[in-house]
């Protein structure tokens, strides 16, 4: 199975969402995330989906690009969906062998899956509209108060942004190794679970070694470009909060308060 993980991929288009200050985007993300957890009605979740859809339209990110980024994450939602469908007490609707689907289970599983999809879509929207450097600068800025406690805020932010930047690269590498192993006759999707897991060793091991080599090359490239040599880092892209950032924050808070209190 081809694994094409586009999560972490930045979509470079010019839109009002892209132009928002990355620190404000992270704040908006946290506010939106809190609202997802506060909303406990189906209509509330529908309102949040509509709000996110509007954000997506304004961001001008092609729908295909966004779906490509989200779909591998959707697999994560399958587990709670199945567990809640059949393991929740309630009025029986359908019985398949030893498993009974209940009305409460159906409602809860749909609700939880939508909530998880919302969280993943929100994270993807943030990644698609914020470049690695913006993300790094914003995270470093937000973590700066912890520097007083000797917390390496800049380094943590750099590690975080590089990790996100390398997700699509590692996904490409996984696919190359998978094809190379298949060409050598490795059957990844045949046989018992134990033999399939053994076959996966043939992918995971070179993937791990490759990732380690990439990390070494990157570290040398960063060091040779004077990262961590003691000079105070400056920033080419200056972070600047504008009126539009506060307008966006006000709109998002208003929508979320409406969804939490009235729906």
């Amino acid at each position: 199975m081809t694994l094409k993980v586009s999560f972490g991929h930045y979509c470079n288009v010019d839109s009002p969402i892209h132009r928002l200050d990355p620190r404000m985007k992270i704040h908006l993300f946290i506010v939106f995330l809190a609202a997802i957890f506060f909303v406990d009605t189906t209509w509330g979740v529908v309102a949040l989906i509509a709000a996110l859809a509007i954000v997506h339209i304004i961001s001008k990110v092609p729908l295909k690009t966004a779906l490509k980024a989200i779909w591998p994450m959707c697999l994560v939602c399958l587990f709670p969906l199945i567990v809640n469908l059949f393991a929740t007490q309630g009025e029986p609707i359908l019985t398949i062998g030893a498993y009974t689907l209940t009305d409460v289970g159906l409602h809860r599983s749909i609700f939880l899956t939508l909530r998880m999809l919302l969280i993943l879509s929100l994270a993807c929207e943030l990644m698609l509209t914020t470049s690695a450097v913006e993300f790094c600068d914003a995270t470093a800025y937000l973590l700066r108060p912890f520097s007083k406690l000797r917390f390496p805020a800049d380094d943590v932010a750099m590690v975080f942004s590089i990790a996100i930047r390398f997700i699509p690269t590692l996904s490409e590498e996984y696919n190359s190794i998978r094809l190379a192993q298949m060409a050598r006759g490795t059957e990844l999707w045949k046989g018992k679970l134990s033999s399939r897991l053994r076959s996966f060793k043939a992918i995971l091991l070179p993937l791990f070694v490759g990732a380690y080599r990439r990390a070494e090359t990157l570290a040398q490239s960063m060091e040779s470009r004077c990262y961590g040599t003691g000079a105070e880092r400056t920033h080419y892209r200056q972070l600047k909060v504008r009126v539009w950032d506060f307008v966006a924050l006000a709109i998002v808070i208003a929508v979320l308060v409406f969804a939490i209190l009235w729906l």
Partner: peptide, 19 residues
């Protein structure tokens, strides 16, 4: 494997920022 940033300009600016 040598790129730090996703946008070309940001990556080229990485060294000058560090100094």
């Amino acid at each position: 494997s040598q790129f730090v940033a996703t946008i070309v300009e940001d990556d080229v600016a990485f060294g000058p920022e560090n100094i």
